[in-house]
């Protein structure tokens, strides 16, 4: 059998795989709020600035 059938099958399986990933991410609500994460991302920098002060207490709480 020609190799093209195998290649076609692989490409379609990969495409469908990505499609399933997309459906799952929609299902989990990843696209429900597309605004807040863009702001949340910026906060990590702010937190780093004050970690020397808060870190000891923070780790205590978590342990």
């Amino acid at each position: 059998m020609s190799i093209i059938y195998l290649l076609l099958a692989i490409s379609i399986v990969i495409a469908i795989g990505f499609f399933i990933v997309f459906i799952i991410s929609v299902q989990k609500g990843q696209y429900d709020d597309v605004y807040t994460p863009s702001i949340r991302m910026l906060f990590d920098d702010e937190l780093v600035k004050e970690t020397p002060k808060t870190k000891p207490t923070k780790t205590e709480k978590q342990d």
């Binding site: 429900d32 709020d33 807040t36 702001i39 949340r40 906060f43 702010e46 808060t54 709480k61």
Partner: peptide, 27 residues
Amino acid sequence: CSSCIWVLENLNKLQASVTTSQVNFPK
């Protein structure tokens, strides 16, 4: 505003019994 998101998502610093808090800003 963004400060609101920040303070609400850091509620556990005010009250350790809060495990996580997540804001949905548009809603």
